[in-house]
């Protein structure tokens, strides 16, 4: 594996719980890998299978969805829906030959900043072990072919 490889990880997280935890992690100066790009959602119930597939299409090496803890969803069951959709999307990416481990669901409460840091560390480690997404490599090759800096 290329030692310079730094995975790009997309995190789709809900504003009520995980985003609050991530915000607190910052206030607490907790250290975690900078590989994660956060998109804040009102609720992970908004996450659609198509969004997850689009993330891989756009070159993400890994995607994490993180909502409230089970039973604590601000919208009662948005995180439960997200959990099922993530499970479904794992099957869909496995069908096309992409490792389903590149996608994971987390449940992190608003006060659990250390848990957020740990989750990002875990996904970063996993993404490094898996290596760059084959889709990202192809994307980069296509861009290079077109003379655009990747």
């Amino acid at each position: 594996m290329d030692a310079r490889y730094e995975p790009k990880i997309l995190a789709l997280i809900c504003t009520y719980c995980t985003y609050t935890a991530a915000d607190m992690a910052g206030s607490l100066r907790l250290q975690y890998p900078p590989n994660v790009r956060v998109v804040k959602l009102l609720c992970t119930g908004k996450v659609d299978v198509l969004h997850l597939l689009a993330a891989f299409k756009a070159g993400a090496d890994a995607v994490m969805v993180s909502g409230c803890e089970i039973g604590d969803c601000h919208f009662l069951e948005g995180n439960l829906r997200a959990k099922e959709r993530v499970a479904h999307a794992k099957e869909l990416i496995a069908e096309i030959g992409l490792e389903p481990e590149r996608l994971e669901m987390f449940h992190i409460g608003a006060s659990d900043a250390p848990q957020w840091a740990k989750a990002v560390e875990m996904m970063t480690r996993r993404a490094k072990e898996l290596g760059p997404s084959p889709l990202r490599k192809l994307e980069a090759a296509a861009l290079a072919a077109e003379g655009v800096a990747a």
């Binding site: 299978v49 198509l50 597939l53 689009a54 891989f56 299409k57 869909l92 990416i93 069908e95 096309i96 030959g97 992409l98 084959p134 889709l135 192809l138």
Partner: peptide
């Protein structure tokens, strides 16, 4: 239809 098209798109890309 949308999901299948997205899947086929990724698979096609993977297969070059």
């Amino acid at each position: 239809a949308g999901i299948l098209a997205a899947q086929l798109d990724l698979a096609g890309q993977l297969a070059g």
